[in-house]
Computed example of a mutant assay.
Amino acid sequence: MARRSTVRDPRITDDPELSAYPGTPQDPEFDGAPARGRGAPTRGRWSGGGGRWLIWAGRAVLWALIVVIVVNGVRAPFERLTQQNTPSGAPQVSPDAEFPIGKATSFASQFAAVYLNFDAVRLQEREARLAPYLPDGAEPQFGWDGLGRMSAGAVQPYSSEIVDRQNAVVTLAFQSEDRRQLLSVPVFYDVEAERFVVSGRPAVLPAPSSANLPAVPAGERDPAAETELRTPLADFFKAYAAGNNVSLQRYAAAGVTLEGFGGAFTFVNLKDLVVPSGAGTTREVTATVVWGVPARTTTSLDSTTNADPGEASGKLEQAYRLTVVKQGDKWFVKDIRGAKRSVG
């Protein structure tokens, strides 16, 4: 058996770059080279193939982080918006939404009309009328000792305070002789039975005094227009009081239908007419009218009339705001309504 020469071929080196067989199957870096056997030269450095996997892995992680940041940046405002619009957990219902304050105010108003009117000679009548509003065991007169008298009217809602879903305090305004006052009424609501009851003693309170009305400077007036309009407007108010639709339409602008009082008042005079300075065929004017108020008619047992209902026995001043238009050489009324606040 022949022995292998131990003399190393100087053409073969450990460095792959100096291989004597570059690009051949004998080249250790050839992709299809078989595993090195005994005596095969070894590579002297790392080829770098594993480094490319690390680079791709790093890029994938980086892109994943970018996607997460972008998605969170878009999603966060949307989630905050939806969380604000969507109630969390059980819906919170305020007492205001559950307590029927409108019905409670109606109940308290009826109670006040009875409670604020009493007379010593009508004890039993007041007691019977109060009973439907009071809780069981309450005093029949609900705090009144049966002496003296009081009368009140013009009971109107003023304010309300909802304490919880079953309790509220309703405040009402009323007029007693020459005094305007308030009445505070505590009310209890039975949710299951849907019923109300006065739950405590009411309280009479003084009503706020009237507000101070600041003076408003009067604007410039148009004397010529006031003189021109006074007669046609006086004729208009006469027809307006009488309520004769045929004659009233003579003073109405084209396409406008007016309705009058139908004899409820009589025209006395046009006390004042204010036409602001300006120009044009459409003007807005303020008129102060004096109406005649018919006397009250009383009928005796023999059915005789003591006064003529068509005879004016009183006077009442009222202010109106009118829109008038000039068509040709005549003025016509386009609209009539209540006047704004007075000047001065």
Rank of each mutant, 00 (worst) to 15 (best):
G137W: 09
S303V: 09
W56F: 00
G328R: 12
P87L: 09
S5P: 06
Q327C: 02
F237G: 01
A108V: 07
K340D: 11
P232D: 03
Q141K: 00
E161I: 05
P214H: 06
R283N: 03
V114W: 06
G49M: 15
V216M: 01
G143R: 02
Y21R: 05
S47A: 10
F261A: 07
D27S: 14
V61I: 15
Q318M: 02
R149C: 06
D9C: 11
G200W: 04
L229T: 10
A128L: 10
V67W: 11
L182T: 06
G263T: 05
Q181R: 12
F237L: 02
P208C: 12
L270P: 04
T86H: 15
R126Q: 06
P309N: 13
G39S: 15
F261G: 05
G255A: 00
P22V: 05
D119V: 12
L65N: 12
G262R: 09
R45H: 10
L316C: 07
E194I: 01
Y158Q: 09
S209M: 04
E79W: 06
S199A: 11
G58H: 11
D222V: 00
V274G: 04
R165P: 01
A60P: 08
N72Y: 05
V67Q: 07
R8D: 10
P140I: 13
P202M: 02
F188S: 07
T42N: 13
D302R: 08
A225H: 06
E226C: 01
P214A: 07
